[in-house]
């Protein structure tokens, strides 16, 4: 099950997108979230859709794999779609069953909103698929660096993030092991009433907490032994390099926004 989720996973490759500065990619995503909302008609959606697929192409991530990975969120997208279909009362009436009336406007809105949702998920998955988590963290630390001046513990937050990222696979592994051990003792995590299922989680959660605390304690000791005494006076091993292609991406983004802005009034 967990193996099929692609959100948050990194797929190594040497594509242009992989080689971009994480800061450029982060800025891009922030901007994209805004730009997607500029789309309001067939033309604009087509443009932004085409643009998204261009990035997918450049990233060399297999489309089939991306779409397969979207399956878990598809349910959510469908739910949004039907929500709009059932509750938007605009345009001509398409059909009617009993109390339910479906309008043309609702269907169009449903399609647009679901599309917007899908594009956002696609682009953000692409960020994590093409950027090692640690680079994302570095990018965030660097972009938010100025906040240190107003006493935001940017270094500590970034370190926390990178350690969490480091331990996610370890803890997933551990969850899997404990789950198997309890299933071997007859625990059932997947059937029965809701209250029974909640109860069934206790034998999983407690060992997981106990071990996570133990790990945290040992890690703290190991970090101290290796000379960690906070962000002060620390140098950085990873250095981010902004290149021409990152500037190009930014320029491209501006052009796209402008195009969308013009096309949206057609």
């Amino acid at each position: 099950m967990m193996e099929k989720i692609i959100f948050g996973r990194y797929l190594p490759s040497d594509s242009v997108v992989h080689q971009m500065d994480p800061r450029a990619k982060l800025l891009f995503i922030f901007a994209f979230v805004g730009i997607v909302f500029l789309a309001n008609n067939v033309m604009t959606y087509a443009l932004i859709g085409a643009f998204t697929f261009l990035i997918v192409f450049l990233s060399k991530v297999k489309l089939r794999f991306l779409i397969g990975g979207l399956k878990p969120v598809l349910l959510l997208v469908l739910f949004t779609f039907f929500l709009h279909v059932f509750f938007t009362k605009e345009g001509d009436i398409l059909t009617q069953f009993g109390l339910l009336t479906i309008y043309k406007g609702g269907v169009i809105k449903g399609i647009f909103i679901s599309l917007r949702f899908l594009l956002l998920i696609l682009v953000t998955s692409l960020l994590t698929l093409t950027t090692p988590p640690i680079s994302v963290t570095d990018g965030i630390e660097s972009l938010f660096g100025p906040l240190k001046k107003i006493k935001v513990p940017v270094h500590e937050l970034a370190l926390m993030m990178s350690i969490s990222l480091r331990f996610i696979p370890t803890l997933l592994d551990e969850t899997d092991k404990i789950m198997k051990a309890q299933r071997a003792r007859g625990a059932d995590f997947s059937s029965g009433s809701i209250s029974n299922r909640v109860k069934a989680i206790i034998p999983l959660l407690i060992p997981l907490f106990v071990s996570a605390f133990k790990r945290a304690e040992e890690l703290a000791v190991a970090m101290e032994a290796r000379g960690y005494k906070g962000g002060e006076g620390r140098t950085k091993y990873r250095i981010l390099r902004w290149s021409m292609r990152d500037t190009m991406a930014m320029v491209f983004l501006v052009v796209l926004s402008a195009a969308l802005f013009i096309l949206r009034s057609y």
Binding site: P133, I134, R166, K214, G227, Y237
Partner: peptide
């Protein structure tokens, strides 16, 4: 529980950074 970095080289660098 003593592997701090997300990759091998990051981990070796940790003490040097400190």
């Amino acid at each position: 529980n003593q592997f701090v970095g997300t990759t091998v080289q990051d981990d070796v660098a940790f003490g040097l950074e400190n």
